[in-house]
Nucleic acid binder design. Structure first.
Lengths: 231, 231
DNA sequence: ACCTGAACACCGTTCAAGT
DNA sequence: ACCTGAACACCGTTCAAGT
């Protein structure tokens, strides 16, 4: 006779907030931070939000869109100021891209999804705007600048995506080990070039390679004219 | 009384071949060609091989390894000759990388898995050997050549991975559409640089961009010295 | 050594039905 | 309009048991 359940159950937990895209994405980010992106599934997320998976489809088109939203949220952490290096556009650009890469390094799986589902959120637009502006200060022709932004972001994203040897990452670094082993154990007779370049092929601190990649791209972008348009 | 099933059932289908890594990978390639990589699952593959999924684990460590094996098989199709352009190392290198990129363009999903699980099969080694050899003809310092190969392959792979607007691909091009829409509808007041570079940011034939990317990288790689090693 | 059945622990997405 | 239960059609991987 005592069990009227309505008010009791309502007070049992800290008041389930109304569903909203905002709340859904925030919760997804939280799950990613604590358990990794592979746990950011519709079902797991629904469970966390105390509802069924079907309910999420009112706010999110599918899993890919969900991951894209999580990525954009994370891009809010990129430091766009360019502080850290010198005052020139080049140092500032380097600092912004380094910040972008480091943010993705924390979540290589997200970098991979960035390669699949191109982001289009406000934080992504802010990032593109900033890089474009800095690169334009190089004085390079407009098209080179426009195409160059793409190259810089693609390189940084792909570098992060590759860097899967990470704690929260289940698909960790044994593939890279396999590649290293394969390159090391190569027969000098059949693969002379590999043997000849061997230590360097595998060596090099990530930081050094990142810095060099940046210089390679900026030098190339500013100095290489776009080809004559094919038909 | 007539139904002795042993010999009959043995003749019912064209004699199930014994399981082997070779046979498994070949069948996987065939499924990918006809149904796309997303159908290359342990279960689907087992079904095709007329066995249970557990049996495959004798030959293949997991799904990622399976996809890596499929990728290496596909790399056998890359034309390493370098025919098509001129005779110089640069034209030949361009031809080899174009061939690599085009092979991956047929299967963008495979390109993505190449970014995650670094390949290490014999076809991959052959490809690296060839690119290394060609790039070494530039006369650039050893370390630049070694690191440069990585950049060239990474750029080609990432470019292919992005290019997901493809027939067999379920996760098709609506994300790119969303990005284009976002870039187009940007407010000139808040994102002046995007507005200023707008047509070029999105335009450009894939071929033109590929050619330009190659030139950017080769110019950058051959002209940019590696930084002093940090500690 | 190789192969298997069966189980465990998950997925994404849809849809008719409810409020 | 928003939310839900239930279902459909899948997954990867392990493990004890068999040959």
């Amino acid at each position: 006779m005592s069990a009227r359940k309505e008010p009791v159950s309502r007070r049992e937990r800290p008041a389930k907030p109304a569903l909203s895209r905002r709340w859904i994405v925030d919760t997804a980010v939280q799950i990613m931070r604590t358990e990794g992106l592979e746990k950011v599934t519709m079902r797991r997320l629904a469970q966390e939000l105390d509802t069924g998976p079907a309910s999420l489809y009112v706010y999110v088109a599918n899993t890919a869109a969900l991951h894209a939203a999580v990525l954009d949220a994370l891009l809010g952490e990129v430091d766009l100021s360019g502080r850290g290096g010198g005052d020139g556009w080049r140092d500032q650009l380097s600092a912004v891209l380094t910040s972008y890469t480091l943010v993705l390094f924390e979540h290589p799986q997200l970098a991979r999804s960035a390669l699949v589902a191109r982001p289009s959120g406000e934080n992504y637009l802010r990032l593109v705007e900033r890089i474009l502006d800095l690169l334009a200060h190089s004085g390079a022709p407009r098209t080179q600048v426009a195409w160059g932004v793409d190259k810089l972001l693609l390189d940084a994203t792909a570098t992060a995506a590759e860097q899967s040897t990470h704690e929260h990452d289940p698909t960790s670094g044994e593939d890279w080990d396999a590649t290293v082993r394969a390159l090391r154990s190569v027969d000098e007779a059949t693969h002379p070039a590999i043997a000849a370049h061997m230590p360097d092929l595998i060596d090099g601190a990530v930081r050094d390679r990142m810095r060099w990649s940046f210089d390679v791209l900026v030098n190339g972008i500013t100095q290489t004219p776009v080809p004559d348009r094919a038909d």
